[in-house]
């Protein structure tokens, strides 16, 4: 039987459509029911409580976060990777350094720094591949599959919240969490507000880990959320307010 050219083309076309159609038939995707629902997740860190308990808490928030997320401990400060860490007042708020009175008051207060999950994030604006992007619930996410390692986001972040994998991080992870990935060399990483725990209905690990309950996690857009009450009652500041990045991490200083 001779096949005409036209028939062959038709057949080819049909096969293509068939392949495409059968590939498209898979399952569907939904959000987990148990997931926490919010429109703008935020943290309020009570530095007064932090200071009171600092001698005994053992910086559990940092330890738990880093071990849960397989964050390596690289001894070389220059190549260091950190998602949440402790910093002195004058480094966290360098613009207030000249105010001696304030500086004196807060000099011994520990400040926990992490990604601010800004409402107007410069890192997201500059990323050339959308590897870092803002989710609808306000979390500034990292897609490590897509990051090309250009480090434009690190230049853009005014808070120094981002770390780059200058070398393979794996040899520096002493104890591994088998349920979470590590990162590979050549990508930028940072705190993701424990998006993977939020999907399972759990609060971020640092919040849960704090023995003094000094960190509160909540939804700024939900007026009934505890975090809004706390922010109304207490004196709360954010880092580098003048840059109008609108951080989602508040520090309760009074």
């Amino acid at each position: 039987m001779a096949i005409k050219r036209r028939d062959l083309l038709k057949l080819g076309g049909l096969t293509l459509i068939g392949t495409a159609a059968s590939a498209a038939v898979g399952g569907v995707y939904t959000k987990p029911q148990e997931a926490l629902k919010g429109s703008r997740w935020a943290l309020a860190i009570d530095v007064v409580k932090c200071k009171e308990n600092r001698a005994t808490c053992g910086l559990k928030c940092v330890e738990v976060c880093h071990s849960l997320h397989n964050v390596p401990s690289i001894p070389d400060k220059k190549k260091e990777i950190k998602w949440i860490w402790e910093e002195k007042f004058e480094h966290a708020f360098p613009e207030h350094e000249a105010n001696h009175y304030l500086n004196e008051k807060l000099h011994d207060t520990p400040f926990l720094l992490l990604c601010n999950h800004c409402d107007n994030p410069p890192c997201v604006r500059v990323c050339p591949t959308k590897a870092t992007f803002k989710r609808e619930d306000g979390i500034v996410m990292m897609d490590y599959h897509r990051c090309i390692g250009c480090r434009f986001c690190m230049a853009a972040c005014p808070y120094g919240a981002r770390s780059f994998n200058w070398i393979d991080p794996r040899p520096f992870i002493a104890k591994v969490n088998p349920e979470y990935p590590s990162r590979m060399k050549g990508v930028v990483e940072k705190c993701t507000f424990c998006y993977e725990r939020i999907a399972e209905g759990k609060i971020p690990a640092c919040v849960e880990a704090c023995p003094a309950k000094a960190i509160v996690f909540g939804d700024l857009k939900n007026p009934n959320d505890e975090i809004n009450k706390i922010l109304k009652e207490r004196l709360a500041v954010r880092r580098k307010e003048e840059l109008t990045t609108y951080p989602s991490v508040f520090y309760l200083i009074g």
Partner: peptide, 26 residues
């Protein structure tokens, strides 16, 4: 010089695969 500065050079074409007009790099 841009290429050697990339951490994941084999992903360089992601810049074109996911065009991002709000990025000056793009």
């Amino acid at each position: 010089f841009i290429f050697v500065d990339l951490g994941q050079p084999n992903r360089v074409l992601n810049v074109l695969r996911y065009p991002t007009p709000n990025s000056v790099f793009f």
